[in-house]
Structures are given as structure tokens and as C-alpha cells.
Simulated scan of single mutants.
Amino acid sequence: MPLPYKINLIDHERWISSGYNRSFAWGLVRNASTKELGFWRVVRYNPNLDTEGGCYEFSLERTGSAIVSEEFSFLDSEINRSAALSEFVAKIENWEKNPNS
């Protein structure tokens, strides 16, 4: 069954609903046809410090080097989170179309 978006961050909502628990700050990345592309994760984010940001990263392996990343600040701000996620998934989509660039 196809997924709803061109790029889908599996378990991202679980991370948010957990209160940004670090244990849930990662998941699979799948395209609309459910092909597994790699993993997303959040690094350098402390949910107890609302004055600092962090970084979304995409890699081919769960703990591998980041291929794509997007910095964010104040993740609890829905506007900032939406903007960072939009840029992040756009970068992954571009990588999927041009993996060697």
C-alpha cells in the first residue's frame, strides 16, 4: 500500500508524541512506494532546553554518516518544525533523484 508522501519519516509522530524522548528520535525513511531509503535521526537536541536547537540527519545506516541534514531551533515551535521538516524531506527527495551528486 503506497505511503501518503513522496518522502515518509516513519515513527516521526511517535517521537513528537513521546515529548521528544531521545529513545524515539530516529526511524526509517521510505518513499511513496514504500521503498526503504535509509534512516532519519535527530542529533544535538535536548527537549529540556527550549533555547537550543538540533539537527535532522538522513543516512543509509542507522548510525552511519549523514548524507543530508537540516538544522533547526526551538523544535517546539510548530512553524520552525514545519520549515525544518519541509527542507529536510526536500533534500532527501533531491538526493533520491540524484544520489551521486
Results as ranks from 00 to 15, higher is better:
residue 58 F to Y: 04
residue 59 S to W: 02
residue 92 I to H: 01
residue 44 R to N: 13
residue 43 V to M: 02
residue 76 D to T: 09
residue 71 E to Y: 04
residue 4 P to H: 05
residue 10 I to H: 06
residue 92 I to P: 00
residue 71 E to H: 07
residue 63 T to G: 08
residue 29 V to G: 01
residue 62 R to G: 12
residue 28 L to S: 13
residue 30 R to M: 04
residue 32 A to P: 00
residue 25 A to C: 10
residue 1 M to T: 09
residue 65 S to H: 09
residue 91 K to G: 09
residue 74 F to R: 05
residue 19 G to W: 00
residue 69 S to H: 03
residue 75 L to A: 00
residue 61 E to Q: 14
residue 6 K to N: 14
residue 36 E to F: 02
residue 26 W to D: 04
residue 63 T to S: 13
residue 19 G to P: 00
residue 42 V to G: 09
residue 59 S to H: 03
residue 81 R to V: 03
residue 75 L to K: 00
residue 91 K to L: 08
residue 51 T to C: 03
residue 81 R to E: 01
residue 85 L to C: 09
residue 7 I to D: 02
residue 10 I to R: 02
residue 53 G to P: 06
residue 95 W to M: 07
residue 33 S to W: 10
residue 29 V to C: 10
residue 52 E to A: 13
residue 32 A to H: 10
residue 71 E to T: 02
residue 96 E to F: 11
residue 47 P to I: 03
residue 75 L to V: 01
residue 101 S to A: 14
residue 90 A to Y: 04
residue 21 N to M: 08
residue 35 K to F: 10
residue 86 S to F: 12
residue 44 R to P: 00
residue 21 N to G: 12
residue 97 K to Y: 05
residue 81 R to H: 06
residue 95 W to R: 02
residue 45 Y to K: 01
residue 21 N to W: 11
residue 68 V to T: 07
residue 77 S to L: 10
residue 86 S to Q: 11
residue 50 D to G: 04
residue 51 T to S: 09
residue 95 W to V: 06
residue 5 Y to H: 14
residue 32 A to S: 13
residue 49 L to N: 15
residue 80 N to Q: 14
residue 61 E to K: 11
residue 3 L to Q: 08
residue 42 V to M: 13
residue 97 K to A: 14
residue 2 P to W: 04
residue 73 S to I: 01
residue 90 A to Q: 09
residue 64 G to S: 07
residue 88 F to H: 04
residue 17 S to W: 12
residue 14 R to M: 13
residue 3 L to R: 12
residue 46 N to W: 06
residue 16 I to F: 09
residue 25 A to H: 03
residue 5 Y to W: 10
residue 69 S to Y: 05
residue 91 K to C: 05
residue 98 N to H: 15
residue 99 P to K: 00
residue 37 L to K: 05
residue 39 F to N: 02
residue 75 L to N: 00
residue 28 L to H: 12
residue 8 N to E: 10
residue 21 N to D: 15
residue 95 W to L: 12
residue 47 P to Y: 06
residue 90 A to M: 11
residue 71 E to C: 02
residue 57 E to T: 06
residue 96 E to G: 01
residue 93 E to W: 08
residue 99 P to H: 00
residue 11 D to I: 03
residue 21 N to P: 04
residue 68 V to Y: 01
residue 60 L to C: 03
residue 90 A to F: 07
residue 16 I to Q: 12
residue 19 G to C: 03
residue 94 N to V: 08
residue 10 I to V: 15
residue 17 S to L: 15
